[in-house]
Write a protein that binds this DNA or RNA. Sequence first.
DNA 1: AGCACGCCGACT
DNA 2: GTCGGCGTGCTC
Length: 851
Amino acid sequence: MSERLVSVALPVALDRGFTYAVPASWPSVPEPGARVLVPFANRGLVGVVRAAQPERLNGARIKLLEEVLDPPGAPSLTPELARLCEWVADYYVAPVGEVYRLALPGLLTGHDVRRVMLSEAGAQALAAAREVVLQPVDDAGLPTAAEQRVLAALAAAPRGELAVERLIDLRPRIPGVLRLIGDLAAKELCTISWDEAGGEGARVEAHYRRTDYLRGAATAEETLREHIGRSKQRRALLDLLEGAGSWVPAGELRGPFPGYKKLLEPLLAAGLVAVEERLRALDPFAAETLEPSLPQTPTADQAAALATLRGDLEAGKFAASLLHGVTGSGKTEVYLQLIADARARGGGAIVLVPEIALTPQLSDRFRARFGETVAVLHSGLTPRQRLDAWQQIRMGARPIVIGARSAVFAPVPDLKVIVVDEEHDASFKQEEGVRYSARDVALVRARDASAVAVLGSATPALETYESARSGKIRWLRMTTRPTTRPLPEVELISLATHRPDPETLLTGRMRTALVETVAAGEQAIVFLNRRGFATTLICDRCGALHHCPDCSAPAMTYHLGRNRLMCHWCGFIEAPPERCVECGEGELLHGNAGTERVELALAKDVPGARVLRLDRDTSRGKGLLETLAQFRRREADILVGTQMLSKGHDFPGVTLVGILQGDHGLGLPDIRASERTFQLLTQVAGRAGRGDRPGRVLIQAYGIKNPAIAFAAEHDFEAFAAWELDKRRELHNPPFGHLALVRISGPDQVAVQRRAEELAAVIRAAAEEVRRKHAEEPGSAEAPPPVQLLGPKASLIERVNRRVRWQMLIRASSRPPLRWLLRQLRPRLGDAGSGEFKTMANVDVDPQSLI
DNA sequence: AGCACGCCGACT
DNA sequence: GTCGGCGTGCTC
Ligand SMILES: [Zn+2]
Ligand SMILES: [Zn+2]
């Protein structure tokens, strides 16, 4: 029989899989997605069997798999997810190990999981060796001095056992411990086992519930008292359980009733209380019982969309749809009812929402409808909580998953629905490490799982919109809103003609509107762009802006609250210097923070207005939720804030929304600047209005004629899209062209530039090959070259964190040549050179921003 | 990413 | 003399 080989993804930052042999004694080859323990550079690492052919290597000796950590037939990652990881690694040019790590909770992968235990023979050998020191004899076969140190460390540990990582951490260090452990194990002087974090499966906990026995009956009190006895504590405990109405985990009783077990005994015996081992509650929020919510009667639009989506679900084939519904058209109810349908068919669902929209209100909405079948994956989970959630999802106990970007990898079995809400949101693109787009990964996953994908938005990404328009995906429109309230009336105010106050950008028109609103007893929100209002320190002698020592960005941001300067690019924080660093003489002056300036001006100019401010300084910790709650309770009239207010929070009392500089983002040299501006304005404008009264929106801008602004004011997405798509088509930008941005960085400018040129040569050669093949096809003479290279050139901010950054853009007319070219480029990426001249190169496929 | 191995300064 | 600082090279 030929050697059975598997490729294993390991949590190391190396761009390849590792080939291992399956021991001959194993009856079968572990399946893709199964976790395996493998020897790797003297360590014992947990990896995942890849859904890919093992590469045959020349020379390097192939090691044996040590152990399969998952039960047969139940790999940690379903084969479907393993395939998805392979696709992501290939498409986004990312190391497989890193991709598989995205799909597993941190505790299931990573570090060395082995434990070493002193064996009987080891203890004897150690004792014998110690004898020898006193009475030298022939020491053949005795452990070496280094080995003795390891054995001694084990002997000193409780139960003669230590985690390998503790042995590594031991001070003073034992040189070559890992090799020594291997040697000792081979001589059977120690035995090796491993921690299977989560290997035991999902954790359970005792839960208690008040039964119906003797509940509420008027005659019961007498009998009840007999069972309870005279203990006030026992009575309180019973009351608590009765009030909870459902299963209460033991963990929640331990606090208020330290002796809860004893207290419960007679109650359990009498049948007043039932006990059951149930899955641990995922987090404190999840335990709260909510008023169950019933499906609402759909509007005509909702019903039509649902009918189509249910048809797709019934067909059991992959189908993708854009659910294009104006703000307030009730997209969430469509998701809820579609998911209910998927559940009725025994399937599961994933709902992806922008990070900022993953609020308790949103998860409550799903929990109220689907109860304990929902898992919410939010960023606040501890590693252990994340593992609990992951295991419960994997075993099918929580078939509905709500989460941000990374939830696209949730191991939901029998996935039937994937929803990407606010699909245009930039947070779905991971901007570090594996630079994947959760929206696009969701589509690929849905296709592979034959699931229904729904992309919801009022202002879809132009890629999505074009796919819908051209019929690549279905286009479901919802134009009516359940409320009778008309869309807000938007007024544009030109900053060019209205002469704003230079400090605050407030125009007379904006002030008047705010005065009117407050006088009418209503609330207003004023938005400003954080970056446009960033405070800087300027020298009163030479006029220089204080800038970061490690970056070439023009200025650092001054945070008044903590009296600190911060660099937006590298995160460097420093105290303001006494004197100007440039001339050494001038004093550094600053204004108030943007939000603060506006807050002060409004408090002065709007009579009787109570003004709240929300920015980085006031939103730290609990500040954000506290301020929002205050405003919602109508304890203030005006809320001044940055874009963090633009979604996820409802303000029912707001009738006026003011935007200080609507076209701020348009100045950036970025292909998506117009799109982002339009989306932001539309989103922000949607905040105005109450009950059935329309709100008012005031947008101040320098260029009010710009279509991104003008069409937003008219709530006309399609006109905006038509205009923007024309521009994109002309420039061969997405969705009509496909981009990959190559970034090169390193400490030395010359080395970075040279590396960039080298890579550019590789890309040009590959592009030329693509062009030659393309030219052979008939009718292609006039077409533009299928792949173009723009650059290399220095990035907009050339120096960040003492590293020089260069970039170049690959633009292709279609996907296949781009993917072919990236595969050619792949082996030349990563680190090169050493020391001072070390450079790093990577690719961002489908970049969001070209800066 | 770790970690071994190797080569130089500041401690017992 | 050893400890440990990081520079460099390797991991199936
Ligand atoms: Zn100066
Ligand atoms: Zn900086």
